[in-house]
Design a protein around this nucleic acid. Structure first.
Lengths: 349, 349
DNA sequence: TGTTAGCAGTCAATTCTACCGAGTGCCAAC
DNA sequence: GTTGGCACTCGGTAGAATTGACTGCTAACA
């Protein structure tokens, strides 16, 4: 009875043990060889202990249920996105080879430089570890408070507003005036801006003087230019490593072009990563992320959390037939090291 | 007699008029069609007024002299790098279509934002104008003087040194100490650093206090970390636009990969551009720039000069059979607009 | 009833052959 | 010196034949 029920309306995400084994064997082999895989190679694979004929009939079922597809009648089977999804969901987590583990540890003990440099190099590391294109996103400073603002005069009508945030980021904005600002006014404005803004975040609105003298105008301009940043981007930074891997890893020229043109648009990449994280996923396969040009891709994302707060994410972009276990392990390990590196005690020297 | 001499030892860079015309016709057509070009299409082209047979015999000569090559016996001719070089050297300068001119002007009248944003967008513009990958390099600040330095405390042992240069660039450096620095020391160090460094360039060496108290240590650390920047990079920034064009424009996957992996290394790109400029070239064809992985490429460079001083460069990277006239015109026009934009009166608002 | 061996059928990929045509080099005539 | 003509070369293409890796189906089997 239970069996019957299971057969007529099979829970879509729960295959019986044999189907699961076969599906996993198909996916694993296809990831390995990039070829459609036939019944006999599955039958001969380690975990499967039935004849090719049996495998075939199971494959028909798996195809009917949408896990596999056949490029053409007399070819083997290829996993669908749904097939990959099942595979990934039932993946036991792996670890990196000890050589790779060493490489990561070595990297993080030796790396020096400013945050941006470290993230840039990290993205290169991650890409080299996996031979996929990597993405490192640092969180914006919408929640960081302002440690210091300073107005520096370039010339009478052009000032530079330099803002330092508690997360260590530094942002500059041009502040231009239609009148000549004298040195005294600029430093007075700078002083008042400090008093006004230190300790606030970009989300705080502050009371600006409404007077029309030079100092007040400078202050108003500065605050408005600083707060104007908000809508477009949040100060996230994106570092892309190994974009040349795109050409190695994807087949058609057209796919390569599409993927590259997505990677060119940093804002899009940030949004993509954020979207995936918001969906609570760590892997988005094929069209799961909703970016049509990336429908041939799988994207792996691992959040970087420092002291419980989201501080960014690392990601990997490869073909749907990517080596999920290794890639997940690499992304996970790097994100942890990154968190530790920028987290507590570490001396960034 | 003179004729005889010209025949036995022809000046390699000076072809007789007919050869020149034929060579130019071959190059022009090959750029257009990407196919080997045969004698008859050359003979029928506008500027040539001889029979295919005559063209053939001239082509034999041009091949012997290294301007043309034959992929195989029964194919037409293809220009060699030397052929392209001749073509480029004898190119009369062109102008952009008026629609493109409008696009450039429109861009520069409407563009807003920080210098970096403008350069980033400019590289996209240039790439869209030409459908080649573009490069925008801004000069380093080795000759810019320091307008302001400020030490901001992140926590007791981590300070941030924020330096503003006269060219409007802002640089941050971490300054870490092995002792807890108190707030007063940090602001005192900041004050003294200002007195010490304002008006100097990174090439100036300054006298630092040798005392061992906190303030002096902070100052020493700050100065050393600031001056340490020099050797690796000079603060140049690179903006690459349209890297996806690489996939459109080059044939083999392997070429695409090679080119992309060069573009990944920003330092390399800066050096490449600088090298070409130093050679006094505006176009480097094939192996002229000495970067083997780019031997299938031509690189166009146009310096950006502001008030007589080099302020950077714009470049284009395409296949050796790129549309030189249009690309040169675009690079030239953009570099001029860039110079004007950041030059005198313009309000960057 | 589920599993298996065997068999006929399908279809992409490969190989082969023949052929076409673009383009050359050479030569003899102008 | 230029040209038309001719024989030749050789890459590219199109079609036919072959191969072989699969499948689905069926009948026998445990």
């Amino acid at each position: 009875m239970a069996r019957r029920a299971a057969k007529t309306s099979p829970s879509p995400s729960d295959l019986d043990a044999r189907k699961a084994t076969i599906l996993e064997a198909v996916v694993a082999e296809h990831i390995d060889t990039a070829q459609p895989v036939g019944s006999s190679s599955v039958a001969h694979s380690a975990d499967v202990d039935v004849s090719p004929a049996t495998v075939r009939s199971e494959m028909v079922a798996l195809e009917r249920e949408g896990y596999l597809a056949q490029p053409h009648t007399s070819a083997g089977r290829v996993p669908t996105d749904k097939g990959y999804r099942y595979f990934v969901d039932h993946l036991k987590s792996g670890v990196l080879s000890s050589a790779q583990q060493y490489q990561v540890r070595d990297f993080f003990t030796n790396v020096r430089g400013e945050v941006e440099d470290v993230l840039e190099k990290t993205s290169t590391l991650l890409s080299e570890l996996t031979s996929y294109t990597s993405v490192v996103v640092s969180a914006g400073h919408s929640h960081a408070s302002i440690l210091s603002v300073q107005l520096v005069s370039l010339d009478a009508r052009h000032q530079l507003l330099v803002t330092v945030f508690s997360d260590g980021s530094v942002v500059k904005h041009s502040v231009n005036t239609t009148f000549d600002a004298n040195f005294v006014d600029v430093s007075e404005a700078s002083r008042q801006l400090n008093a006004l803004l230190i300790g606030t975040t970009l989300e705080h609105r502050v009371q600006v003087p409404s007077r029309s003298d030079g100092v007040a105008t400078l202050i108003r301009e500065s605050v408005s230019v600083l707060h104007a940043e908000q809508p477009t981007t949040d100060g996230e930074q994106v570092f892309i490593g190994g974009s040349s891997k795109v050409a190695e890893v994807f087949a058609g020229v057209e796919t390569v072009r599409k993927v590259l043109s997505i990677l060119e648009q940093e804002l899009l990449v940030v949004t993509l990563v954020q979207d995936i994280l918001n969906q609570g996923l760590s892997v988005a396969i094929g069209s799961e992320h909703g970016y049509e040009p990336l429908s041939a891709c799988a994207v792996i994302v691992a959040p970087v959390t420092i002291d419980g707060a989201p501080a960014g994410a690392v990601g990997l972009l490869g073909p749907t037939r990517m080596k999920y276990r290794e890639a997940l392990a690499a992304a996970g390990m790097v994100s942890q090291h990154l968190a530790r590196h920028f987290g507590g005690e570490d001396d960034l020297a």
